[in-house]
């Protein structure tokens, strides 16, 4: 059932990206999507992830707000004659433990102000984050934990 929905979503994406809504293109998209899903069949297990649509929406809104803020901050930083930087790599203790949540959190961190994920520890307990302002690592860690991580836990648990 889930596979069928994914297949239809793939087909819709194909039709949208090619921009031609003909029956022939729809059929071609269906064949392509089937092939693509067949190729990655080992990697997609049917999952039991609870998704809360409104919390996901709130996560998306927070993300775009932070992304805009982040680009603006970098822009302001680089035009200053004297750049005030205290960069460093800090260790972020992860509360989320599933792979897709860690991936999502790492990507969100990269696109938000002054932080960039570098690596995750092998035991998946820590995320290593490069920060432009590492003067107060505890505050940065608290910001991420109360912001994105809390939202991810709300949206997918």
């Amino acid at each position: 059932m889930t596979r069928l929905i994914v297949l239809l979503l793939f087909t819709l994406t194909w039709v949208a990206v090619t921009g031609s809504f003909t029956l022939l293109n729809l059929a071609f998209g269906l064949v392509l999507s089937g092939l693509a899903l067949f190729l990655i069949r080992e990697n997609v297990q049917p999952s039991r992830i609870a998704v809360r649509p409104f919390k996901v929406l709130s996560l998306v809104i927070l993300f775009f707000k932070e992304l805009a803020l982040s680009a603006f901050k970098v822009a302001v930083l680089v035009v200053r004659p004297k750049m005030d930087l205290k960069p460093g790599i800090l260790e972020f203790p992860l509360k989320v433990d599933r792979d897709f949540e860690i991936t999502l959190l790492a990507n969100l961190i990269t696109l938000t102000p002054g932080t960039l994920s570098v690596d995750v520890s092998d035991d998946r307990r820590f995320l290593y984050v490069h920060a432009l302002d590492c003067a107060d690592p505890a505050a940065t860690i608290r910001d991420i934990a109360d912001g994105f991580e809390a939202k991810i836990l709300e949206a997918f648990r």
């Binding site: 930087l85 205290k86 960069p87 460093g88 790599i89 570098v118 690596d119 290593y128 590492c134 690592p137």
Partner: peptide, 10 residues
């Protein structure tokens, strides 16, 4: 890392 970096937990 640049000389001005303050820490490197990694």
């Amino acid at each position: 890392l640049a000389k001005i970096s303050v820490r490197d937990d990694y």
